[in-house]
Design a protein around this nucleic acid. Structure first.
Lengths: 340, 340
DNA sequence: CATTATTAGGAAAACGTTTTCCCTGAAGAG
DNA sequence: CTCTTCAGGGAAAACGTTTTCCTAATAATG
């Protein structure tokens, strides 16, 4: 019978109300709701479910979390919310999480270690079931978190050296080589590159293997045709200003991501450089806006949609067997997108 | 002294550990951490804080939530995560929430009532401190939620008729009138419009007062120069295909938002219509990408940044005085952005 | 028939907080 | 000196779950 006979004043029914109304104990209600079928007869189960529906009972997560020390929450860390590429991945992940009953807390780290660490602490306090680091940056708190066995997953950027945690992403070095091959086929020489921060494994992998693959074919990147940039439009624009300060221009430029490519394109417009006939631009990510706003852009398509399922799968493995071996990395397929 | 002498095996310290270590009761620890200064001497407070720091203690939210029936969570409902306009607002809100110690759960409703209702139920179970509806859609669950006194706030779109809840947003009808005035000044006649779903108070307000203001000056919108669309690029493109199927074209078109304008622009490019000299395009929102990708677009700037503070403020009012009168609406200033 | 195994379910402990009482000692008022 | 007030702090209840034991009745086995 109900444990707590006090009448419930709030508009919401609790498990006690359900138990009282159904004439069973709260243990039974809990078990039925959690699908523990072998502890209650079919008749009882159905009866409880009926009462649950009638009272519109829904368990409060806090109670469950307190008992099980696991919440129905997953945190997604994103370095830049304004990048649609990340937004799309966030959406894919959120929709898969919803299928497994979890909600997603969004944390914008702005690529700053201090902010990331504050969020890591906060998410630990929330007992989140997973911390998905889309574009993590190295930080003391990150290493601490992994050491404390927090359920972290690295997305898109590999864990920093010495940190052992699962990784999901594309094969950046392979993609970089393929882009180089494309440059060579098209005789896009001299070639240039505006690469992202080399502290990021993704940016580094793309750029370095692009460069070495060209070198293998005897093509050197001129020093002034290589510029670093942050992964933003503004930064790409600035790099373009520097690189295109005098002629001759490179025949084509490989950019660390699509936003950099947007910035470069803007500068090309200002300089009346025709894209791609005069100067071709190659990006990375295949930002969903490209189709409409950047038909001039060749790029590497990263399979957003697949991220959602991959993350959901990794998280479920992580939670059901925190200590067992789970795949250390999942490599998703990319694809070069060449626009006419 | 400590209530629970059992040794804590987990890596994380609990309030019991802190109390034991500091030689005080858990009540005192709790009070110190919550800033109840008049229940502990300054010396005790400092001592407790020292121990808290030494043990790296951080309260588990679930315990607190269970006791207080309020979590440190706020839900943000968004109709379309892939719209950078919404992403930017989400970011502004999240960063203000973080300042007040809350985290943000992101819910993508896809503008569908059924999905919105599922999220509403889920968020109620999470005991969220606020549900911020950025672009709400009418639904049974929404009315239920307001009736149940859930802490909802309407952003950008007003609550549906008969629903009493606070609203934060711009003055859409005023903006629509101003755009009409601009059209008249520039002699942009004949004018056209691709408006968003008229079920949305925002889309309706913009479009209708644009139309009536033109009418007041004796300018009628021709029927074939008015098309409905969803607030997406693809839908804007489709509307443009229909509207521009034959000449003559309108001199300028007012779009329900910037994404529609992007779709329209794409069609103009296909048809070799010069923008804006031949056909001017006016959008709404001032998508952050415009600066770089859509220099041809005039638009209405909605003050993203102000949304964060306004929401944080409304939420704090809502939580500290759930029944007291709080402002029924907060109107933020907009501004016409006219690009050369 | 006597024993054992199984099924169905309940009582109560636990999870980590906050908060309501309550108590003690000391200071202040008369 | 007695009475009141107040500052400082503790014990324990409560929040809503899940889960570990435990028990009673029934079914299976010898």
């Amino acid at each position: 019978m109900s444990r707590n006979p006090r009448k419930n004043t709030s508009p919401r029914a609790t498990i006690d109300d359900v138990a009282a109304e159904a004439g069973v104990s709260i243990a039974t209600v809990s078990r039925v709701l959690n699908g523990i079928t072998h502890k209650a007869s079919a008749k009882t189960q159905q009866h409880v479910l009926d009462v649950v529906a009638r009272l519109d009972y829904r368990p409060v997560h806090a109670g469950r979390a307190l008992r099980t020390m696991r919440s129905a929450l997953v945190a997604l860390f994103v370095p830049d919310t304004s990048n649609m590429f990340y937004a799309t991945i966030a959406d894919a992940i959120a929709s898969h999480l919803k299928d497994s009953g979890s909600s997603m807390i969004l944390c914008n780290t702005r690529d700053e270690p201090a902010i990331q660490d504050r969020f890591l602490e906060e998410m630990e306090s929330h007992l989140v079931n997973g911390i998905v680091l889309l574009g993590a940056v190295d930080s003391p708190g990150l290493r601490q978190a992994v050491a404390n066995r927090l359920p972290v997953i690295f997305l898109n950027r590999r864990p920093p050296a010495g940190v052992d945690a699962p990784y999901i992403g594309v094969d950046n070095p392979l993609a970089g080589r393929e882009v180089a091959e494309h440059f060579l086929e098209r005789r896009w020489i001299p070639a240039g590159a505006i690469h992202g921060p080399l502290t990021s494994s993704a940016s580094r992998g793309r750029y370095q293997s692009f460069r070495t693959q060209l070198a293998r074919a005897g093509v050197k990147l001129e020093k002034r045709f290589v510029q670093p940039a942050d992964l933003t439009i503004a930064s790409g624009y600035q790099a373009a200003v520097d690189m295109l300060s005098e002629r001759p221009y490179p025949r084509a430029i490989f950019c660390g991501n699509d936003l950099i490519a947007y910035g470069l394109y803007w500068r090309c417009c200002e300089l009346k450089i025709r894209v791609p006939s005069e100067l071709a631009i190659f990006g990375f990510d295949d930002n969903p806006l490209n189709e409409w706003l950047a038909p001039w852009l060749d790029t590497v398509r990263v399979p957003y949609e697949d991220y959602g399922a991959a993350v959901a799968r990794a998280l479920s493995l992580l939670s059901e067997s925190p200590r067992r071996r789970i795949p250390r990395e999942v490599i998703l397929p990319h694809r070069l997108v060449i626009r006419r």
